[in-house]
Each structure stands twice: as C-alpha cells, then as structure tokens.
Amino acid sequence: MSEALGLYNYWIVIFLMMTGLYLVISTGNLVRKVVGLNIFQASVLLLYVTMGRVDGATAPIFVEGRETYTDPLPSVLMLTAIVVGVATTAVALALTVRINEAYGTIEEDEINEQEHAQELAG
C-alpha cells in the first residue's frame, strides 16, 4: 500500500506521457500530431518537477527561518525544456502551413496518395 502511495504520482505522469505519444503515432492529421507532441513534452516536465519535490519544503526562495526547500535543479532544467518544446512546435506548425500550401491538405493519407501519384509520374 505504501508503495502505491509513494509512486502513484509517477504512474499518472507516465499515463499522461503515453497518452500524448499515442496521439502522435495514431493520428493522421498533422496538427493533431503536433498537439500530441506538446502533451508528450509537457508531461515530461511533470516527471522532472515531481522528482524535485521534498516533503514539508517550500519553493526555493530563501527566507529567514526556513531550512528545507524544494530542489531548484529540476525547475531550472525544465525552464529550458519548455522553451525547447515551444520552439519545436513553432517549426512543426510552420511546416504544416507549407505542406498545406503544397498539397492542399494536412491529412497524412491524402498526402501519401498524392506522393504516390507523383512517384508513378516520375
């Protein structure tokens, strides 16, 4: 029982990550893929932040009379990761716009059909 209480946070975070990954690999719509990627990355942030938690501590902002603080390092790392995630999203969406211009669709199966026809035409 104590095992489950000590780890349930991680298990839900894993569920969240896998939900995002599922959307990425199961959908054929490019925008939904990007949304899934976002959920996947946002959930990894939770994994790190969960690790940094210390029972009975406060946020790592020093005040008189407090001894225990949360670990600042996971926060630092995830600040970087958030920005990296948004940067990737931006590039992915810009590509989606261009693909829509070139193919007139953002559905993977319709794009594949057109590419197949292009392949046969040489």
Binding site: L37, V44, A92, R98, A102, E115
Partner: peptide, 25 residues
C-alpha cells in the same frame, strides 16, 4: 516532398529527443 520528409523527421526526431530527455531524467 522535402516538406513532408522534414515533417516526418521532425516528429520522429522530437520523439527521440523526448525519449532521451526521459532517460536523462
């Protein structure tokens, strides 16, 4: 087709990078 090739690379590459981030964590 360079655009769709890039998109696929971006999705798989980012999934790979996120796996690396999980492993690093």
């Amino acid at each position: 087709r360079a655009l769709t090739a890039t998109f696929r690379y971006l999705i798989l590459g980012t999934v790979g990078a996120t796996f690396i981030l999980i492993g690093t964590g």
